[in-house]
Structures are given as C-alpha cells and as structure tokens.
Simulated assay, not measured.
Amino acid sequence: MKNLLRVATICGLSLLTFGGSAQAQTRSKYEVNASAIKLGFYSPGSGQARSGGGTHILSIEGDTVVQHVPERNETSVLSVGYIERDNLRIIPITLSQLTHDAKRTSSYDYYYGYGLGIYSARLNLGGTETTSGATKTLIGAHFVLGLNLTETTFLETRYLYPAKYDDKFIGGLQVMYGIRL
C-alpha cells in the first residue's frame, strides 16, 4: 500500500505539471465537474491513533465539484482521500457543503464548510491497547476552512471526526496544499 501511495503521488504531480495548466486557465474554480488534487499531512487527535500511525501522516485527496449555487455562494464538493502509515489507514469519502466569500468582503479569498463522510479505517494496535486490525466502515463528519491563494492554488484544513474504531478515536486535523486542475 505504501508503494501505491507513492505511485499515486507521482502520477498526480505529473498530471499537474504536464496537463493541469491549460485547463486551469479556462475553468472556474467553482464550476461543476471542476477538480483538484491535494497533498498534505494528517495529525491524529488521540494517543492511540498516533501510536498506530505517527504524529504526521502523508495524505492525498482528490476533489470534484458536484454542485454550485452562485446566488448563495455555496458549492458542494465530493472528495476521496488516502491516509496511511504503519498500522493506521483511513480512506475518507466525503461530501462537503462550502460557503465562499464571492463578494470579497474580506481581503482574503476564503471558504468554510462542513460535511458528512464514510471512512474506511484500519487501526492495528498491539500490547495493552489492542484493536481488531480489521478494515471497518465508519460514518462521520468533518469541518473545512480554506484559503484560495490564486485561482488554481489553495490551502485547506479539515478536522475529520469519524465514529470510534474499537472504542479508539482516530479523528484529527488534516492540512493540505491543493491545485485545481
């Protein structure tokens, strides 16, 4: 699985380098079917999850806009991600409702929102804090805060809050740099 993550990262960065720039100039960042790729890290919020995967775990995620309502400054985004290191793996599939500052009342081009998701998770702890190590499907929520740096680049933080895995909290903070394709 670690090799799969490396291959996906290399392919994504290659696409951004060789194929993303022409589309980025012609598409609006909130247009339906607009897509983005994000790369960053995930920091679990509990000691049990950190002992399974570490403090900072590489994460990759792809987004696509499924709905945009300009009158309300709202956008719905479907995201699929991949987070894995050592004995912790989380695959979040989320739907976010984002509100953005279309009138630019601030000097910053920001957005914020919330959403629901399905999280495929595995945590394999040994010793006194044992877990099943099986892959489980968990339901959860998340909160989003983002800052558009340019028309094609942005920074985004998300707090993932899935249901507990064998009574262990695996949620945490995700910080990513994104590029719209």
Rank of each mutant, 00 (worst) to 15 (best):
R50W: 03
S51N: 15
S51A: 14
S51T: 12
G53K: 12
G54I: 11
G54D: 09
G54W: 10
T55N: 13
H56S: 12
I57F: 03
L58S: 13
L58V: 13
S59K: 07
I60Q: 15
I60P: 08
E61T: 14
E61P: 02
E61M: 14
G62L: 07
G62I: 10
G62Y: 09
G62A: 14
G62Q: 08
D63W: 10
T64R: 14
V65H: 05
V65A: 06
V66L: 15
V66Q: 07
V66T: 15
Q67P: 00
Q67H: 08
Q67M: 11
Q67E: 09
H68K: 09
H68W: 11
H68P: 08
H68R: 10
V69C: 05
V69T: 12
V69W: 11
V69I: 15
P70I: 06
E71Y: 00
R72S: 13
R72V: 06
R72W: 14
N73H: 15
N73G: 08
N73A: 10
N73M: 02
E74F: 04
E74S: 07
T75W: 05
T75I: 12
S76K: 09
S76V: 09
V77Y: 12
V77S: 10
L78W: 01
L78F: 11
L78I: 01
L78G: 00
L78T: 00
L78M: 04
S79Y: 02
V80P: 00
V80D: 03
G81Y: 03
G81I: 04
Y82I: 07
I83R: 02
E84Q: 13
R85V: 01
R85K: 14
D86H: 09
N87V: 00
N87R: 10
N87L: 01
L88M: 06
L88T: 10
L88D: 09
R89E: 08
R89T: 10
R89V: 02
I90F: 06
I91W: 04
I91E: 08
P92Q: 08
I93L: 12
T94I: 08
T94H: 03
T94P: 03
L95G: 06
L95H: 11
L95S: 05
S96M: 02
S96I: 00
Q97N: 07
Q97K: 14
Q97A: 11
Q97I: 08
Q97D: 07
Q97V: 05
L98K: 06
L98M: 07
L98G: 00
L98Q: 13
L98H: 09
T99E: 03
T99R: 08
T99I: 09
H100Y: 15
H100G: 05
H100F: 07
H100M: 02
D101L: 00
D101V: 00
A102E: 15
A102W: 04
K103L: 08
K103W: 04
K103E: 14
R104I: 01
R104W: 02
R104P: 01
T105G: 10
T105R: 10
S106Y: 08
S106K: 09
S107E: 02
S107M: 05
Y108E: 07
D109S: 13
